[in-house]
Amino acid sequence: MAGQGFGFQATAGLTGLGLPSVSAQWLEGAGDGSRFRGQRVLSRDLDVPLDIVGRDREHLRKLLSRLARAVAGECTLVLLDDEGVRWSTSVYRTGGGDIELSSGNDLQTVLSFRAPDPYFTASTVATQVVGGDAEATPFLSSLTALPLAASQAIGEIQLDNVGDADAYPVWEVYGPGHDLTVKSPTGETLRWTGTLGATEKLVLDTRAGTVKDGTGANRYSLLAPAPRFWTVPPGISTAYVSLLDTTAASKIVCRWRPRRWMVI
């Protein structure tokens, strides 16, 4: 619509794209100073300046009504980086939208939003696949591994997170197989002690903290005690994978969407 001389256009002055605020915890003791106990990243606040131009006053009123409906609920802020990758975050309007009436058919306003998730998530999905070779080569062929027996696999896989924040992996396991273990580069362990048949699948979503089979049934109860739904750190790292009772058809797929603090 902007190319036809009317519609909505974001103008210069967008704020809130930098590093989000953090809340730090400190332990105050009897001695001098304090000790750092940790921190959490807070929600991101953004201000988006808009220029709204109508064909006439009546059309301008319709555009304002359309804008009000569009930002009444959850919205998605999308940014495009220099490499053509789309990064997005969900936002909700928290204020702004004031207008100054005039006799013209255009006006300027600023909308304020809050992003509950302070990170920007990529539209692209990173994938690492282990096993499932179409030509029936051994499951271990995809691993830097040490074979324990003909039907057992144990080894390492390389994870490459191109973002600059931790990413949440989703593990998809295709049977047959038994007793899955995935261990993070820092030693955090997520182990599932159940058994998958040749036609069964298991999905472990680390962000949601769920474990379901291919039918959507809950299989969380088969996790080993004290499970850690660990994240993929930025950069290249090495994770540990173990699966027993495998065949050439067995496969593990690890997927994640990279995340960034900032997109410029």
Score class of each variant (00 low, 15 high):
residue 146 L to W: 15
residue 114 R to F: 04
residue 62 K to T: 12
residue 147 P to E: 13
residue 68 A to W: 14
residue 168 Y to Q: 05
residue 39 Q to C: 11
residue 96 G to E: 07
residue 161 N to H: 06
residue 203 V to T: 15
residue 167 A to E: 05
residue 37 R to Y: 01
residue 57 R to I: 15
residue 238 T to D: 09
residue 235 G to V: 05
residue 96 G to T: 07
residue 6 F to I: 08
residue 54 G to S: 14
residue 129 V to A: 08
residue 15 T to C: 02
residue 42 L to G: 03
residue 264 I to S: 15
residue 73 G to Y: 10
residue 165 A to Y: 03
residue 82 D to S: 11
residue 227 P to M: 10
residue 98 D to I: 06
residue 219 R to G: 10
residue 92 Y to F: 15
residue 71 V to I: 12
residue 255 R to C: 04
residue 13 G to T: 06
residue 48 V to H: 04
residue 115 A to E: 02
residue 59 H to Y: 11
residue 37 R to M: 10
residue 92 Y to Q: 06
residue 94 T to H: 07
residue 33 G to S: 05
residue 181 T to E: 14
residue 241 V to C: 04
residue 88 S to L: 09
residue 28 E to V: 10
residue 202 L to Y: 02
residue 83 E to A: 15
residue 53 V to I: 14
residue 19 L to Q: 02
residue 263 V to C: 05
residue 155 G to M: 04
residue 220 Y to S: 05
residue 256 W to V: 06
residue 155 G to E: 13
residue 95 G to E: 10
residue 240 Y to E: 07
residue 83 E to T: 15
residue 88 S to M: 09
residue 28 E to Y: 12
residue 131 G to S: 10
residue 127 T to Y: 02
residue 82 D to Y: 08
residue 125 V to N: 07
residue 253 V to Y: 02
residue 152 Q to P: 01
residue 118 P to N: 07
residue 252 I to S: 07
residue 7 G to I: 12
residue 70 A to W: 08
residue 208 A to T: 11
residue 84 G to C: 09
residue 45 D to A: 09
residue 117 D to I: 03
residue 176 P to M: 10
residue 212 K to D: 03
residue 120 F to C: 03
residue 19 L to N: 09
residue 11 T to I: 10
residue 60 L to D: 01
residue 92 Y to E: 07
residue 45 D to W: 10
residue 161 N to A: 08
residue 61 R to P: 04
residue 182 V to Y: 00
residue 255 R to H: 02
residue 26 W to D: 00
residue 140 L to M: 08
residue 102 S to I: 12
residue 38 G to E: 05
residue 108 Q to D: 11
residue 243 L to R: 00
residue 69 R to Q: 10
residue 191 R to D: 06
residue 143 L to V: 07
residue 135 E to M: 12
residue 71 V to S: 01
residue 168 Y to S: 08
residue 125 V to I: 13
residue 38 G to D: 12
residue 171 W to D: 10
residue 218 N to H: 14
residue 120 F to N: 00
residue 185 P to V: 11
residue 21 S to P: 11
residue 87 W to P: 02
residue 106 D to A: 13
